Amino acid sequence: TFTSYQLEELEKVFQKTHYPDVYAREQLAMRTDLTEARVQVWFQNRRA
C-alpha cells in the first residue's frame, strides 16, 4: 500500500506523462522512498 503523499507524487507525474523514463522513475522513487521497480509497476497498473 502507498501513503497519500506517495500517491499524490505518483499521480502528479502520471498527469505529465504515462511513460516516465528511467531517470524520472528514479527521481520519483527517491522522493517517495519507494524502489524504482515499485514505481515502474505502479505506472504499468495505472495505465492498464
Rank of each mutant, 00 (worst) to 15 (best):
E11Q: 04
T35Q: 05
E9Y: 04
V13M: 14
K16G: 07
R25F: 10
T3H: 06
A24Q: 15
V13Q: 09
R47C: 05
Q44R: 07
Q40R: 15
V22W: 11
D33L: 10
N45L: 15
D21F: 13
F14D: 06
E11C: 02
T17N: 14
T17G: 07
E11H: 03
V22M: 10
W42Y: 03
R25P: 01
V39L: 07
L28S: 01
E26Q: 14
E11V: 08
A37G: 10
Y19W: 14
A48W: 09
Q40P: 01
T1V: 15
L28K: 00
E9W: 06
E8G: 08
W42Q: 01
D21A: 06
L7S: 07
E11D: 04
F43K: 00
Q44I: 13
Q44M: 14
V41M: 15
V41S: 10
V39E: 01
K12L: 09
Y19S: 05
Y23L: 12
Y5V: 07
Q15P: 00
L7Y: 05
R38H: 09
L28A: 02
Q15N: 10
R25D: 00
A24D: 12
E11Y: 04
Y5F: 14
F14Y: 14
A24R: 06
P20Q: 02
Y5I: 08
T3C: 06
D33M: 12
Y23P: 03
L10D: 00
L28C: 04
H18A: 14
N45G: 08
R31F: 06
K16D: 11
L28W: 00
Y19N: 06
A29T: 06
T17I: 05
V22D: 11
D21G: 08
R31L: 14
Q44F: 09
E8S: 11
S4A: 15
L34I: 04
R25H: 03
Q40K: 13
T32Q: 02
P20F: 04
Q6V: 05
T3I: 04
V41Q: 15
Q6P: 01
T32D: 01
D33T: 07
F14T: 00
V22K: 15
T1N: 13
H18I: 07
Q27R: 05
N45P: 01
Q15I: 09
F43A: 00
A29E: 03
T35N: 08
S4Q: 14
E26W: 12
V22Q: 15
P20E: 02
V39S: 06
Y23V: 14
T3K: 06
H18C: 09
P20D: 02
Q6N: 02
E8A: 13
D33Y: 09
M30Q: 10
H18Y: 06
L7V: 12
E9K: 02
Y23N: 14
T35G: 04
W42K: 01
R38P: 00
V41R: 09
T3P: 02
V13G: 04
Y5E: 09
T1C: 07
T3S: 11
R47I: 10
R46G: 02
K12Q: 07
L34D: 01
A24G: 05
Q44L: 07
A29S: 08
E9H: 06
Q15W: 07
A48R: 12
T1Y: 13
Q6R: 01
T32P: 00
V13E: 11
E9C: 08
A29F: 03
D21N: 11
Q44H: 12
Q44S: 13
T17Y: 07
T3G: 03
R46D: 02
